[in-house]
Simulated scan of single mutants.
Amino acid sequence: MNLTTKLTLGAFAGGALLVIAVLPAEYGIDPTGLGETFGLDALSTKPITIAQFDGDLSFNVGDYDPTAERIDQSVQGLIHLEDAPFHSEVIDIQIEDYGEVEYKFVMPADTTFVYSWQVLEAQGDGVYYDFHGHPSSDDAVNFPEGFEMAYARGEGLTQSGSFTAPFAGYHGFYFMNIEEGPITVRLSISGYWDESKEMYRAINGEVVTNEAF
């Protein structure tokens, strides 16, 4: 078979493939009817109709209705806008043998952070932790005497979660080392707070740091 014959047969085969297979499968065009016979027309791309929005979008804040089929306005409580970008930090908290540390974040009410802490290279039970908050000294008169709100307590090696401050004040973590020897608790946190600092530290019951709230 000479070269001209080969090229002619190749062109014929390519054209047949285009008519029988490609057109029905890709474009829904089936001049021979074989596309329908072999089910190739079902593979064709169908036009997508985009429904036009026919409602009036309102930006008035409304109450959340979990039974609503659609929401056409902003919903109070589902979004809280801030004046500044969020913070993002990784804080290594060194805790001595028989040590205790309290690390707090000063937060306005309704602000949020997401967090994850873990005891690095733990050999035992990790830490006793107490995640809690209380008002500042200036706001304490608006709360019961000695008011403190607990969010999570227990023992472990790690915890992750999100938190929204129920009131303005100091919110954060107390860790007690229940390992043998000094440890490091790595706290990764992103969100909104005015400042953060170590508020309390003790070693074997002896207070080293005790910041006023």
Rank of each mutant, 00 (worst) to 15 (best):
I93H: 08
R186L: 10
L187C: 09
D63G: 11
Y27K: 14
E145M: 15
M176R: 15
A140C: 05
A122N: 12
G205R: 12
F143A: 02
A21S: 07
S136D: 08
E195T: 10
S88W: 06
N60E: 14
A21C: 10
P135R: 01
T184R: 09
T32N: 02
T67L: 12
F131D: 03
K46S: 04
Y192G: 00
Q123C: 03
S190G: 06
Y192D: 04
P182C: 03
F163W: 07
Y192P: 01
A11V: 10
D97T: 09
S58W: 03
T4L: 14
M149H: 05
Q123I: 10
G33W: 14
Y128S: 15
P182W: 02
Y115C: 01
A140H: 03
D56W: 07
T164I: 08
I91D: 06
Q73P: 00
G156Y: 11
P108N: 12
G156I: 09
E206C: 00
N142R: 00
E96I: 00
Y192A: 01
P182I: 04
Y174M: 05
I95P: 02
E121R: 02
Q76G: 14
Q76W: 11
G191A: 09
D65E: 13
I48P: 01
V207C: 01
T164P: 04
T5K: 14
K46A: 10
G77Q: 10
Q123L: 13
D54Q: 14
G161Y: 01
R201D: 04
I203D: 13
I48E: 13
E96F: 00
E69S: 05
I178G: 03
T5P: 00
R201C: 03
F173S: 10
L57G: 04
V141H: 08
I183M: 08
A150Q: 07
F175V: 06
Y151N: 04
G14K: 02
E155R: 11
W117G: 08
I79C: 07
F86P: 07
A122T: 06
Y151C: 02
E195C: 05
G172N: 07
A165I: 00
E96N: 05
S160A: 15
P66V: 11
E180C: 09
P85I: 05
T37K: 07
E206S: 06
I189W: 05
D92Y: 09
K6Y: 14
E100I: 12
Y128T: 15
Y200D: 02
L57N: 09
A152E: 14
Y170K: 01
P47F: 09
D138K: 05
T67S: 14
R186H: 13
D63F: 12
D65I: 06
L81C: 01
N60P: 00
G15R: 02
L23N: 02
D130P: 00
T37H: 02
Y200P: 00
A168R: 04
F12D: 03
A202C: 01
K6T: 12
A51I: 14
G62K: 13
E195N: 09
V90W: 06
Q52P: 08
L120Y: 04
Q159L: 15
L57V: 15
G10E: 02
R153N: 11
T209E: 06
H87A: 01
N177V: 05
